[in-house]
């Protein structure tokens, strides 16, 4: 296996962080919204469509995390290529 060095390893680790932290944050948000939504649905039948909107809202955080991760990963790869 090629020796990638501490800097590169930290670069990859940092690239993984945005999507990882974003996913954890989204999971917490969705769990709270989900339980509240189920309670609301029990009270008001037929509101599933509207409820789904609220449950789906936090997902964007992961997508933004994905974008950041991808940009950082491209940066790390470019740095590796640049240093040969």
């Amino acid at each position: 296996m090629a020796d990638i060095g501490l800097g590169t390893a930290l670069g990859f680790l940092s690239a993984a962080l945005p999507v990882c932290v974003g996913a954890i944050g989204t999971a917490f948000a969705m769990s709270s919204i989900g339980s509240a939504a189920m309670g609301y649905l029990a009270e008001k039948e037929g509101a599933s469509g509207n409820v789904m909107v609220f449950i789906a809202l936090p997902e964007t955080i992961v997508i933004l995390g994905f974008v950041l991760s991808f940009i950082m990963l491209s940066g790390v790869n470019a740095a590796i290529a640049g240093t040969g």
């Binding site: 997902e59 964007t60 992961v62 997508i63 933004l64 994905f66 974008v67």
Partner: peptide
């Protein structure tokens, strides 16, 4: 802007 970025889920 956030809404437009949200469409990145299609590829993600």
């Amino acid at each position: 802007i956030s809404n437009i970025f949200s469409y990145l889920r299609l590829i993600a």
